[in-house]
Design a binder for these strands. Structure first.
Lengths: 111, 111
DNA sequence: CGTGTAAGGAATTCTGACACG
DNA sequence: CGTGTAAGGAATTCTGACACG
């Protein structure tokens, strides 16, 4: 995804009522999932919660899993696992790129 | 831009208070620019205005022009001109692509 | 023309709590 | 554990209008 677009996807500007409409979850449920650390909305000066499109996607994932009877603790575990996986993949890519660069450097020096 | 991302950029989900914070415009100004047809927010069941990130970008353009003393009527004209330009460029691309395809077809038939 | 403001009403959001299971 | 609900207060949003220039 274009880095410019990420700023939109991650920008926390949507109020809880709209999130409720978009996800089909009740306000109570949305607030509860925050209490269980599954999401962390931004709070404006007044204390009103503001969500991003990413938060909404996360909530829809949560809704699916809850329907399957998965508990919030378990959902949190899964989310953290996926986070780690993404990080290690990113790390792998970085190391591969570094390897490429090193090889290039040696070749350049060899000639 | 990725078509998937457009759905976020154009999704009208942001309330006027947040738009005001993001653009620095007053509620009065934002509503007035709507009256002058410069933007058209979505209205939910209750009648509350909802804006997209695209609307916000448009509003920031408007703010710049207003600062330069450009009147809303003139801004509207400019916006419509740009819209037409985009459309004719799109049209040109479409016709060029069609030309490419026709050429390919003739070549294929020729062999 | 573009923007401010006071007015009155209706819907939103927040928190802490009790309830049920 | 996950969710519903009533409670009270504070801030939001809406419209139509008068004001100024």
């Amino acid at each position: 995804m274009n880095p410019q677009d990420r700023t939109y996807k991650d920008k926390k500007v949507i109020s809880i009522g709209t999130v409720s409409e978009l996800t089909g979850l009740t306000l109570r449920q949305i607030r509860y999932y925050e209490e269980r650390k599954l999401i962390s909305p931004y709070r404006n000066e007044r204390g009103t919660r503001k969500y991003s499109f990413t938060d909404i996607e996360t909530l829809m994932d949560i809704a699916d899993k809850r329907e399957d009877g998965v508990q919030t603790t378990e959902i949190l575990r899964e989310m953290r696992l996926k986070e780690k996986k993404r990080e290690s993949e990113k790390d792998l890519k970085k190391r591969m790129l570094q390897g490429q660069l090193n090889a290039q450097f040696k070749l350049g020096r060899g000639n």
